[in-house]
Simulated scan of single mutants.
Amino acid sequence: MTSAHNDKALILLVEDDDAVRRLITCALELNNYRILCAKTGQAGIMEAVSNQPDLILLDLGLPDIDGLELIDRVRGWSSVPIIVISARVEDTDKIGALDAGADDYLTKPFSVDEMLARVRVALRRTKTALEGSESGGGDAIFSNGPLRLDYGAGIASVKGAELHLTPTEYRLLVLLAKNCGRVLTHAYITREIWGTSWEGDVASLRVYMAALRKKIERADEANQKLIQTHVGVGYRMVRIESED
């Protein structure tokens, strides 16, 4: 079931394929979302400007403009979450969309349940960011399943056990946490951590990420896989659903 705070979220679907549009619209309506539809990129931009949706679902292969152009134009004035749903399966296409400003990427054919899960994560991330800004700049504590980050103290713990992290491992964990639910490309992460982006940095990133994962998994007996690898693309911290 969809949580209450998402019940009235407004989602803009930009998709020119009638069958796919009907499938997605039906799934969203059954889960209590409000939906706007556009069949072209230009119409999608107009709907986004006019109606300020809470989330955009976007096909890249549109009849008038490429979806990447839509992302670029929307990012010029809005940070609304954008989830790409595309038949393009190459890593370069995924990286291009994510680097352009998309928050997530689903390839066709896709599972409706997975799409709905991605939508919930993106909306929850926006809600958390808004609540943080309203309370004066964000919470000092981040919690996700067994993971707890105390930003003020610079301490990370899993199930109450402190993780002994190197400075780089801690920065990586914080970066993933602050973008929880979002796929971060190798290039984005290496720029944020080391200020540059080249192949040697990506190799170093893999080493640090493997070490970070081992430390988290050793402390978490349930092994909930907090950090997900998107092969050839990057990494995502998975939002662990609360049990209450």
Rank of each mutant, 00 (worst) to 15 (best):
P63H: 00
P63I: 02
D64S: 00
D64A: 02
D64T: 02
D64W: 00
D64V: 00
I65V: 15
G67C: 08
L68Y: 15
E69I: 13
E69L: 13
E69P: 07
L70I: 15
L70G: 09
I71S: 12
D72P: 00
R73E: 15
R73F: 06
S78V: 01
S79C: 04
S79R: 08
S79K: 13
V80G: 01
V80M: 00
V80K: 01
V80Y: 00
P81A: 01
I82W: 04
I83D: 11
V84Y: 12
I85T: 01
I85M: 06
S86T: 07
S86N: 04
S86I: 04
A87T: 14
A87K: 06
V89W: 03
E90Q: 14
D91I: 03
D91G: 12
T92S: 12
T92W: 01
D93Q: 07
D93H: 14
K94E: 07
I95G: 08
G96H: 11
A97M: 09
A97R: 08
A97I: 11
A97W: 08
A97H: 06
L98D: 13
L98I: 14
L98T: 08
D99S: 13
A100I: 04
A100L: 04
A100H: 13
A102N: 04
A102V: 03
Y105P: 10
Y105T: 10
L106V: 05
T107A: 08
K108I: 12
P109I: 08
P109L: 03
F110R: 02
